[in-house]
């Protein structure tokens, strides 16, 4: 999914609400896709809600529900340090840098890099995508530098492996077997390689912290990993770790949008029970 893909998927639901209210003829110019008006309205609503939530977040304190997977990060890094083992960070084979999930994962990597540098523990970052490797090299180098340990940085640890899914899984499994990381972070978009990586991490005795936007792989992480971030928790994680009010503001924006969606659904169901298809008609 591209950067706009996430917006489109979600906002189609909200946007449909505005469809009936739209005077279609007013937009019927040949340069505008009239049938996408509801999505446009939804994009605008989402953007306004998130931006207001972010911009009003300065100097505010937010309560964020404790997420065990994130609270375990320090312990996992500490354990790796005690073992003299590196940490492995994997963003999954399923995403590219255009995917918001990968960006959210890199935001978490930024904090993990800083913390691991403070512990003096290096990060191994094997990837299937050369563009992600390039971004991760910058992120990890910056994290090490912020912690005052630029000497820890080794470009060879952050590397492109192969684009082949199972070739990638085999290569990363081999790295795990040889380097025996103390902690393995599996955060991003995963596909069939998810369980292979999680089980290998388990077999080398690493603490596994998993999180993905792939609902199918989420079920594998839940049974195979020590800690799992479910769905949206992955996107809230960077704000949770860094405590940055702007990021937490965005999480608040997500909650407001969720309330809007749930309210729309509840109203739609109630109207539907009384035989009124106003909202379900829009959604169709």
């Amino acid at each position: 999914m591209s950067l706009t893909g996430g917006v489109k998927r979600l906002t189609a639901i909200i946007g449909a609400v505005a469809l009936a209210a739209m005077p279609k003829t007013a937009f019927a110019a040949d340069w505008f896709a009239v049938e996408r008006t509801p999505e446009l309205v939804a994009v605008i609503i989402c953007t306004i809600v998130v931006l207001i939530a972010v911009l009003t977040a300065r100097n505010r304190k937010f309560y964020v529900r404790p997420l065990p997977g994130l609270e375990a990060i320090d312990d996992a890094l500490g354990r790796s340090t005690e073992m003299g083992a590196p940490v492995m960070y994997i963003t999954g084979w399923g995403g590219d840098l255009a995917r918001p999930t990968t960006m959210a994962s890199l935001a978490i990597l930024s904090s993990v890099a800083e913390k691991s540098a403070a512990f003096g523990t290096p990060i191994l970052f094997p990837s299937h995508d050369p563009v992600i490797v390039s971004a991760a090299q910058d992120t990890i180098r910056e994290g090490y530098t912020s912690a005052g340990r630029p000497d820890l940085y080794r470009a060879d640890d952050i590397t492109f492996v192969t684009q082949s899914q199972l070739g990638y899984a085999a290569a990363v499994d081999g790295m795990m077997a040889r380097r025996k990381p103390g902690a393995v972070f599996l955060l991003g978009t995963f596909e069939g390689e998810a369980l292979i990586l999680a089980e290998t991490a388990h077999s080398v005795g690493a603490v596994q912290i998993g999180g993905t936007d792939s609902t199918i792989q989420l079920s594998f992480f839940l049974v195979a990993c020590d800690y799992t971030l479910i769905g949206e928790e992955l996107f809230a994680a960077s704000g949770y770790i860094s405590g940055d009010p702007l990021i937490l503001g965005a999480v608040r924006g997500q909650d407001i949008l969720k309330i809007i969606i749930v309210a729309t659904l509840v109203i739609g169901v109630v109207l539907g029970l009384f035989g009124n298809d106003l909202i379900s008609g829009w959604l169709n």
């Binding site: 979600l10 998130v50 931006l51 999930t101 997500q254 969720k258």
Partner: peptide, 8 residues
């Protein structure tokens, strides 16, 4: 929602 907020 998470993707939307991240994209924005």
């Amino acid at each position: 929602l998470g993707m939307t907020a991240t994209a924005i």
